[in-house]
Design a binder for these strands. Structure first.
Lengths: 219, 219
DNA sequence: TAGATTGTTAATCGATTAACAATC
DNA sequence: TAGATTGTTAATCGATTAACAATC
């Protein structure tokens, strides 16, 4: 079916939605749902059924006409397709309030991430435990990355430090960076960067609310 | 120029990028930059100069051919256009690790949000201070929302509680919800919801890394 | 002046939605 | 069987990119 030599690029919106479906379906599963149709998924997430169907097709799963999809199989297909079943070693740098919160959620393994070491340059923190992880000094990152073949770096430092941390990560062989510092990182071609500026969705909300209020006044 | 009766909808990608430009430009400003061109902005953020130019045009700012835009004026134009200069009252519900971290960043005012009250149903937390805010019991939300004319609600509760909190918010007159719980909220027509699932960008990173590694092996 | 950059219209590209046949 | 839902191709829609005139 899928030729290994074919570079079939999955659209980013599809990836984003597949992740949403997964969260939604795990919920359905918990509530005892066994089968589900695209329209049911779509109405819960305000997405067109056709879009859902097309997205699901990427995972290779096939449904049954008139019935729908088996929820368990669907969750499984999404997680396999997204690569969450394959574990990658990951470092987290910056054990501030956000870094600590993320570690506490214990959600990394759901997405195939295994946090093997955490770093911070604050002497007060080095040597102490944060959610079962000993905080290490950043100087140890390159050597450890090399020995553990770490592929993923998570940056939860203040913005001023983020680029320097990213540079060290790239130089140490890290291939993918999840950046939560509010700054756009510059990295060499081939390195995967996912910038996640948390406040940006609040920024958008703010602008939409403003537009709404303005529209009301002029009406 | 812009007719008040014309519903000119700004594309969501544009809003997202305008927010990025703002962060980037504030940085430029801090480093002493006075004028900037679209290609300079674009190269820092890996966005086509034409796209930048079109986005900026929405804000109504005009640049000077051969020169570019005055950075200070540009930052100002973006913030005004995004509505961040107009303050809205906001509630935050769920003072867990994430809620506490967000409060600590003191970034709400940059986006026109003024946190006027925070809530949590944990008796251990009620009455205590979190970043200058006294934690209140959720029962007090409706009355306070009414009296303070609060328009924005921020949800940082566990996913199980999020929908119920949202329902109370909507019933209390709140018009826009920033939801950080990993669940898609269902709200009535006309209510603005911005779901921000933090881990979703890690989920995408994971899938991209997986695809990359797979491509390498088969090569 | 010459050249770089803006502002804007036209062309392209890609994602979403609609239509419809296949099928359980 | 009849009807609902899948799977897939075609049509539409909207956003991005290219082209180019205007201008400082």
């Amino acid at each position: 079916m899928s030729n290994v030599n074919t570079v079939k690029v999955v659209p980013e919106p599809t990836l984003r939605r597949l992740s949403m479906y997964n969260t939604f379906l795990r919920n359905v599963l918990e509530k005892g749902g066994l089968v589900i149709s695209c329209s049911q998924i779509g109405s819960g997430l305000r997405i067109e059924p056709t879009t859902v169907r097309k997205d699901l097709a990427y995972t290779g799963i096939v449904g049954k006409p008139k019935v729908g999809y088996e929820v368990k199989a669907l969750v499984d297909a999404i997680e396999r397709f997204m690569g969450w079943k394959n574990v990658s070693e990951a470092f987290l740098v910056g054990v501030g309030s956000l870094g600590t919160a993320l570690l506490g959620y214990q959600k990394f393994d759901r997405y195939g991430m295994n946090i093997v070491a955490v770093f911070d340059n604050d002497p007060e923190k080095i040597g102490h435990m944060v959610h079962e992880h000993e905080v290490l000094p950043p100087e140890r990152l390159p050597d450890l990355a090399d020995r553990l073949h770490t592929l993923v770096g998570i940056i939860t430092t203040p913005p001023e430090a983020a680029q320097a941390v990213a540079n060290v990560m790239v130089a140490s062989g890290i291939r993918a960076i999840w950046n939560l510092a509010p700054i756009s990182l510059v990295v060499p071609e081939g390195i995967i960067v996912q910038n996640e500026e948390i406040f940006s969705s609040l920024a958008i909300l703010s602008s939409k609310l403003e537009a709404n209020l303005r529209a009301e006044i002029t009406q």
